[in-house]
Computed example of a mutant assay.
Amino acid sequence: MDQKRRKNISKFMSLVLRHSPEIIGLKLDDQGWADVQELMGKAARKGQRFSMEELLEVVAECEKQRFALNEDHTRIRANQGHSIDVSLDLETATPPEYLYHGTVGKFMQAIRQEGLRKMSRHHVHLSEQRDTATAVGARRGQPVILTVHSGRMFRDGITFFRSANNVWLTDNVPAKYIEF
């Protein structure tokens, strides 16, 4: 499958599994899992056809590992980034001393005043690698990389989670923990 097709399927699955399952009439359970055959069938009825082989390739080849399959590949879910109410059953984790967040300049004034907020998502997303944060920020323009004092936040009682694809999650990052 070519990269463009893989990207289109991935974007569609992100939309349906993270934000709007109702657009195809898909039901997710409380942890965000969907039946793979139901996903494929309902997607096809809305004009988005893909095979099981293509779905498996999207899951395996996604650099950000956005999706997880159960062991027998009958259920699928997004690893994080939901704007819908799901419980990912994430366990708390001790973060490294520093994590990074990629954004763009137009948000800097608000971030300086309010810190990083989860907005419509369940959590603020942070990465261990500056390169990953740079790629995230670059999706919206010239990236600005913020260094978050995550170790200090954790010692101050702020909870962190780590998703299955190694994205660090927290409810918010107050401005006092951010290097601008």
Rank of each mutant, 00 (worst) to 15 (best):
A133F: 03
K7G: 04
D85M: 07
L39A: 13
F160P: 05
Q3H: 10
Q65A: 07
I24H: 13
W33D: 08
A110S: 15
W168H: 05
S10G: 15
V59E: 11
E179W: 07
R140Q: 13
R66T: 07
R66C: 11
G115R: 12
H19R: 12
A43C: 15
R49G: 02
S120G: 05
K64C: 00
R155D: 12
E114Q: 13
H149W: 05
L69W: 03
G105H: 08
M1V: 13
V148I: 15
G137V: 03
M153H: 10
A133K: 08
A68Q: 15
M108R: 00
E53V: 03
P96E: 09
S51F: 11
E71P: 05
E128H: 01
L116M: 01
N165I: 08
M119E: 14
H122D: 15
Q48T: 11
E179H: 09
Q142Y: 06
E22G: 06
L116A: 01
L28E: 05
E97F: 06
N172C: 13
T103E: 01
D72S: 11
E114C: 08
L28A: 05
A135Y: 00
T132E: 03
C62M: 06
K118Q: 12
C62S: 05
R140F: 14
D85Q: 12
N8Q: 15
L169R: 10
G137L: 06
M153G: 05
A60G: 06
A135D: 11
L99T: 02
Q80G: 00
H101N: 05
L69M: 15
T159G: 03
K42H: 04
G47E: 02
V144S: 13
V86C: 00
R18H: 04
S120P: 10
R152A: 14
G25Q: 09
E22Q: 11
W168R: 06
I145W: 02
R140W: 12
A93M: 11
D85S: 13
K4P: 04
D171W: 13
P143S: 04
V86G: 02
N172Q: 14
V124A: 06
S83Q: 08
G151N: 07
H125Q: 10
A44P: 08
H123K: 01
H123A: 13
H149N: 14
A60S: 15
V16A: 05
L126Q: 03
F160W: 06
E38A: 14
G102Y: 14
Q129P: 01
R162L: 14
F12Y: 15
S127M: 03
H19F: 06
V59K: 03
V124F: 13
